[in-house]
Design a protein around this nucleic acid. Structure first.
Lengths: 340, 340
DNA sequence: TGTGGTGGGACGTTTTGTGTCCAACAAAAC
DNA sequence: GTTTTGTTGGACACAAAACGTCCCACCACA
């Protein structure tokens, strides 16, 4: 059964929504016994006309009877509602989970794909696709998008596709180079996204570990300055979320810095900042690009991360409280809820 | 799996059609390997634009890749097509059967509901509903509809519903009384349909077994004459199909007539005529109303019958060759195909 | 260097969906 | 008995989506 639903999710992505609303309608009538169109519309928070179209269809399917006193389910309709119950549970389990996570962390939107990225590469790809869809839906003409690096972000970029050319959009790396493999660098990801969107991009080549002096000097460079300004004015920020220790190692931090991180309780890393379990910033990476205040100013901040092992880190960053959208997988979502 | 498909058939009949076309598209590309939009549109008999919308959606779902040489399925797309095969078989098995029956008997349209009316009353009701839907879709303003009697027809009438009032339509019984229970008489059914459609109706009260003399006299009556003329000009004829012997008994034919029928190989009965296995008329009922030439002249002749036991009779009447639409059930359809 | 195929852009028209009333009616409340 | 409340179904104007139809730039192959 799971399989057929998964197939339909791909082939008829809007099917689930329609199915849910129709089920809601039937279910409500099932509970009320007899109810009129307007009362029903009010209680389901639908406008009268669209509810009416659905009702006409349900009626023509013989699930519904109308009388001058209101509407009732037919025997077939009642049977259908009863038979659907387990299916609905299975079908909308994730939507429920999404709502739960959304409310737990006060987010605007949560998207959860089924599975565990730690276990399966397919789930990771699916996570990437979900992320790219969210980004696509968030984009408006003229937007500047700042993106971070990381393997999840790379997956996302690879899956990105735009419905049409977005010639007046910009993609920029949120921060300077990360000393990681080229594929996972923010620069690479920004350019990949831009190519796939038919948009423009700028790169930011600033080495990771600079002395304060060298940093000041490089920031005087007009073309560096220009990119940094663009980054800081980004309307959309997309970032991955990492485990603090892993990220520290990957960025080749000095041992004492790493120890200090652990001592301060750093759990998670996102956009160059390290967070403890309460979502408090305990350390920041010294490089050019997005600052905390820019994150706060950005209109849409999208976090993408999955896998049970990242659950705690996700919870930590979400507690920080400046994300708007979280894209994750089932395992990570459940894990994150444990650490609240 | 069967259950969820059945549920969706009831709840989302429109989306399943969409599902079929999308599958057809993917399947075709799957077979062709690489193919362009226009060629594809031609071979699927779609216009370019609507195909294009579907392709864009499939592409955004990551099932499809486009290149300047044409379109190809992605790995995911190919996997989906392969996984869908059993589902499609289950889902559209009846459509295939419909096509088979349609071509076997040279009909314009065949509608098959799942199950066997002999076994389940629910299937009989479903058959009625399917019939009423077909009739509704065939109706144009101003049409005169001649209907026969029988239990299937009664079911159909009970399920009938019209989207709007059809004030300028007429429902008439195709023939005089049948000596059956009132519920199953053509007169009753015509009036029931008319009430449900918001249309008008006329009745025809002519006893079944009349002497030639009495028949001629009654036909001189102006109001009888008028109704008969209306019947003979009907654009739409709806009839059930019966087993010859059963019908003979129900109509209380004399024993010798019945024996003669059997001797002549009469198998089936429809609109007052008896047919042998080749679809040849071997006997006709003596009563006022629709004649063979009126059947031939009618634009839409709809036959409704189901149940494995009626399969042979259905085949026989369909061989007669003047029906346009057949509404039946799965068991009867398969049985009818055996007798071809 | 044509020729026949490709995807993608564009645009005016048609169709469908939608929000919003209203009329006629039935039951319940008063 | 009368008023009020809630019901369905009809109607209509407006907005949005779908559609048919061309065209263009490009690519492969002959």
């Amino acid at each position: 059964m799971r399989k057929i639903i998964d197939i339909q999710k791909k082939l008829l992505p809007d099917l689930l929504k329609v199915m849910e609303t129709r089920y809601d309608i039937l279910h409500r009538i099932y509970l009320e016994g007899t109810i009129g169109r307007r009362t029903l519309a009010a209680s389901l928070e639908m406008t009268e006309r669209v509810l009416r179209s659905e009702l006409e269809l349900l009626k023509s399917q013989g699930l519904l009877d109308t009388a001058s006193t209101g509407m009732t389910l037919t025997a077939g309709g009642r049977q259908l509602v009863e038979e659907m119950e387990p299916i609905v549970k299975e079908l909308f389990g994730l939507s429920d989970l999404e709502d739960e996570v959304r409310e737990a962390f006060g987010l605007k939107r949560v998207v959860i794909v089924p599975g565990d990225s730690d276990e399966s590469a397919l789930v990771k790809a699916e996570l990437g696709r979900a992320g790219s869809r969210v980004l696509r839906e968030s984009l408006s003409p003229g937007d500047v998008v700042a993106v971070m690096g990381g393997s999840t972000m790379a997956h996302m970029a690879k899956q990105f596709s735009a419905p049409s050319q977005m010639k007046d959009n910009w993609f920029v790396p949120a921060r300077g180079g990360l000393g990681e493999s080229v594929d996972y660098q923010a620069n690479t990801i920004a350019s990949e996204l831009a190519k796939r969107a038919g948009a423009r991009y700028r790169m930011l080549h600033v080495p990771d570990h600079l002395s304060e002096e060298a940093y000041q000097t490089i920031m005087q460079e007009p073309n560096v300055r220009e990119v940094v300004d663009m980054i800081r004015g980004a309307r959309i920020v997309v970032h991955g979320i990492g485990d603090a220790v892993t990220m520290a190692r990957r960025r080749k931090l000095k041992d004492e810095t790493r120890d200090e991180l652990v001592k301060d309780g750093a759990l998670a890393e996102a956009f160059g900042y390290y967070f403890d379990r309460h979502g408090k910033v305990v350390h920041r990476m010294a490089t050019a690009g997005l600052r905390l205040e820019d994150i706060e100013a950005a209109e849409v901040v999208i976090g993408i991360a999955g896998g049970k092992s990242k659950g705690e880190a996700i919870a930590s960053v979400m507690r920080f409280g400046h994300d708007d959208v979280l894209v994750t997988d089932e395992a990570a979502a459940r894990e994150a809820l444990q650490h609240i």
